[in-house]
Simulated scan of single mutants.
Amino acid sequence: MNSTDQTPAGLLGAALATDAARPLVTYYDDATGERVELSAATLANWVAKTANLLQDEFAVERGDRVTLLLPAHWQTAVWVLACSAAGAVADLDGDAAAAAVAVSGPDRLDAALACPGDRVALSLRPLGARFPEPPSGFADYAVAAPGQPDAFAAYDPPGPDDPALCVEGQELTGRRLVELARADARQRGLGPGDRVMSLSGYDTWAGLSEGLLAPLAAGASVVLCRNAELLDAAGRAARVASERVTHFAA
């Protein structure tokens, strides 16, 4: 394992170097009909913009906690990887009151208000659209992020043994995250070119691993499905076929 791929952001860098154009995250919302496909290059671009937002606009430093009150979504994947790049600890479904920054979807704004620092709201509308009217006390991610630079360099680069993420109350270093993700990928038999369909949230290790980190560690890709309970069996089978899904994670 190289020193550069011992963090989630490092895994994204490896995917970018291997094949920047290949689809890495495909996202469906069956409540809205939305489908978004992000190549490694497009995902990396969003990660760079978000990491710059954290570092330059919100003055987040290495080790600061960023609470993510978000469902499994392509923008949540961006935030997890951006926190890793900036050296912040991504706290999935954590306590906003203990965070330097709280990031929330439209249904968790009340919980995010407990954050004493900066707060960011994501509309989770199709194509990453902005809120019709920004929530009071929050920066609108769709307004704040697009103008950030397309490349990112950390002022104080995180190391693999720094805390990188907290999920289900367990804090993990970047190195440990990558080890666990690679172990999960081996257990699932994932390899380069595989496509994992995930219906799980990102508030558990299993959901985060199967829906992002294990495929990333294996050189595979993920098809995230939100509100998939609205899809009937025929629709699900059609999606599996059209997306060339090789592995399924409920």
Score class of each variant (00 low, 15 high):
residue 36 V to R: 15
residue 239 R to C: 10
residue 76 T to I: 12
residue 67 T to F: 09
residue 78 V to R: 03
residue 235 G to N: 05
residue 190 L to D: 13
residue 40 A to C: 15
residue 234 A to P: 00
residue 71 P to S: 12
residue 141 Y to N: 01
residue 26 T to P: 02
residue 25 V to M: 05
residue 84 S to A: 14
residue 75 Q to F: 12
residue 104 S to T: 00
residue 121 A to K: 05
residue 179 E to S: 12
residue 90 A to I: 02
residue 49 K to D: 06
residue 212 L to S: 04
residue 66 V to P: 07
residue 60 V to A: 14
residue 20 A to T: 05
residue 207 G to L: 04
residue 144 A to R: 13
residue 183 A to G: 12
residue 183 A to L: 12
residue 130 R to G: 15
residue 12 L to M: 08
residue 23 P to E: 10
residue 158 P to C: 05
residue 191 G to Q: 14
residue 155 Y to M: 12
residue 16 L to D: 08
residue 74 W to G: 05
residue 63 G to D: 12
residue 246 T to V: 13
residue 219 G to M: 06
residue 203 D to M: 04
residue 84 S to W: 08
residue 105 G to E: 01
residue 14 A to C: 06
residue 200 S to G: 09
residue 64 D to F: 10
residue 212 L to C: 07
residue 90 A to G: 03
residue 121 A to R: 02
residue 244 R to P: 00
residue 245 V to M: 06
residue 199 L to G: 07
residue 35 R to D: 06
residue 237 A to W: 01
residue 37 E to Y: 02
residue 56 D to V: 06
residue 220 A to L: 06
residue 188 R to D: 15
residue 191 G to W: 08
residue 65 R to Y: 08
residue 174 G to A: 09
residue 145 A to T: 04
residue 234 A to C: 01
residue 43 L to R: 05
residue 206 A to H: 14
residue 69 L to H: 10
residue 238 A to M: 04
residue 105 G to C: 00
residue 32 T to R: 05
residue 89 V to C: 04
residue 174 G to C: 05
residue 55 Q to S: 15
residue 27 Y to Q: 02
residue 135 P to F: 07
residue 15 A to R: 14
residue 48 A to I: 05
residue 13 G to Y: 07
residue 244 R to Q: 14
residue 201 G to Q: 09
residue 51 A to D: 05
residue 63 G to Q: 12
residue 26 T to W: 01
residue 39 S to L: 07
residue 79 W to Q: 15
